[in-house]
Design a protein around this nucleic acid. Structure first.
Lengths: 257, 257
DNA sequence: CGCGGTCGTGTTGTATACAACAAACTCGCG
DNA sequence: CGCGAGTTTGTTGTATACAACACGACCGCG
């Protein structure tokens, strides 16, 4: 797929829903996930409003959501909620990956109970995606965007299959948070695609077999290993983007340009 | 309608945070979880505002949150978001219980990795809670409220122990949704406390043993069985409170009194 | 030169006003 | 008597105005 077109990393799938808070949310989230707004940067309602050409009302709604989903965190001890972009930390990696693993594990265990034909269809789709992924990760120069999307597509494929309303909702909150790390450290993760695609194969095989326990196990251990790899990468970087401490007020706290 | 405030099921833990949208959210959620607002009832911003004596602005924020968390669902095909209290369905039970199981399974697997002393402390707390639970479920007349709280406390106890920021956030979204069912069908679930407390014992033993896999397994199967029991109860009720269909417009759609 | 108090100033919380739209209703015409 | 077009009404989307409050700066006094 050639791509979201349009200029920046704006709205991706649908501008359709076009409700203002929704679009604001999407745009801001994208900026954060893609690392265009650094962790620790303070977000001020009016600045966002100005930047997107809307009033504070929709912005507030968007921010509230971003806070709840963990992209933004309340700052300081005020009773007023000032917020900043959430920092990246290895602790969060462990937690997020663990949760995603648990949830996808549940999803895949549901899938394992489907009919054989259904499972076969899914398995074939997954194989295709995994092949593309392997290809993309081998080609030079690397297309980070494509890798990003394929990676997402692979997992989304089977989650969608199992997901009801609730799972989908939670998953759509969690996944982008993980992607935030994938994006930021994406370039360094290249070397790690090899083991990842191999683990994908195990997941596919497990789905084919229809063994719930095995499928779940495959998914969970995939994410556990992925967590290990990611943490390794992060710690391997000397000048990391900083699980920054927030000292009372040394730095005048960067603001959203 | 008589009114404002008064005792009723107001704020429970803390009125402290007292920010208006937060309180509105809490109150409304309580009303829904406790079944005081029936599934399918349409919610109108201004009515809520009136009822709580605030303006639409904080109400909107509260509603947005309730929508995202699945307590309210968008109604009709409008591009405008009219909402109603989400219906209860056996499908949702399967999904919600499965997700909670997966997440708590993850939590408990983290706990299993803690030091022996730490685990022992947790285990003893859990035993105490479980004992109280058993007692409360045996005493007549039953104190539904107490059962409700003990049940919640038991699970919260070990989730808190393992939880970081993210898990806690998601869990606090999911748990009340489950509780909604527990509350609505609570009186009928009495007979089911026996097996439940027994399963709790297995969980406790697994935590003591420090075996991650075993602990996870105990928790997940607990929830799976609980789902089965709950679904059984729901289906056993002839005139159930209705996984109601929404026929275009037969009924003028009840409104929030 | 240091310290405390007072006054800005920035930012969020809340209310209100208005616009947009969809559904229901009414009225007139076939 | 039925059916459609205009009109009314209910409800949400968005903007704006104002209030509250925390923090920092400035100024004067010791």
């Amino acid at each position: 797929m050639t791509l979201p077109a349009a200029s920046e990393y704006e709205s991706e799938v649908q501008v359709i829903h076009g409700t203002l808070p929704e679009r604001t949310y999407q745009q801001l989230r994208n900026l954060i996930v893609r690392g265009r707004i650094a962790p620790g940067v303070r977000i001020v309602e009016e600045e966002v409003a100005l930047r997107f050409g809307v009033s504070r009302t929709p912005v507030r709604e968007a921010l509230a959501r971003l806070i709840q989903e963990g992209y933004l965190i309340p700052i300081a001890g005020n009773r007023r909620t000032e917020v900043a972009v959430a920092p990246l930390s290895t602790d969060s990696v462990g937690e997020l990956w663990g949760m995603i693993g648990a949830l996808e594990g549940y999803a895949v265990s549901v899938i394992a109970a489907l009919s054989a034909e259904r499972r076969e269809t899914i398995a074939m789709d997954l194989e295709s995606l995994n092949r593309q992924l392997r290809q993309a990760s081998a080609s030079r120069p690397r297309d980070a965007d494509k890798l990003f999307e394929l990676q997402a597509a692979f997992h989304q494929r089977f989650v969608d299959e199992a997901a009801g309303h609730h799972l989908l909702g939670i998953y759509s909150i969690l996944r982008p948070q993980v992607q935030r790390y994938e994006w930021v450290y994406g370039t360094r993760l290249d070397a790690e695609y090899e083991p990842s695609t191999n683990e994908h194969l195990k997941i596919i095989a497990a789905i084919r077999s229809g063994d719930r326990g095995k499928a779940r196990e495959a998914v969970e251990s995939h994410w556990e290993r992925a967590a290990g790899r990611t943490i390794g990468i992060i710690e391997g970087i000397a000048e990391r983007p900083a699980p920054r401490r927030r000292p009372s007020k040394p730095v005048p706290s960067k603001r959203l340009s």
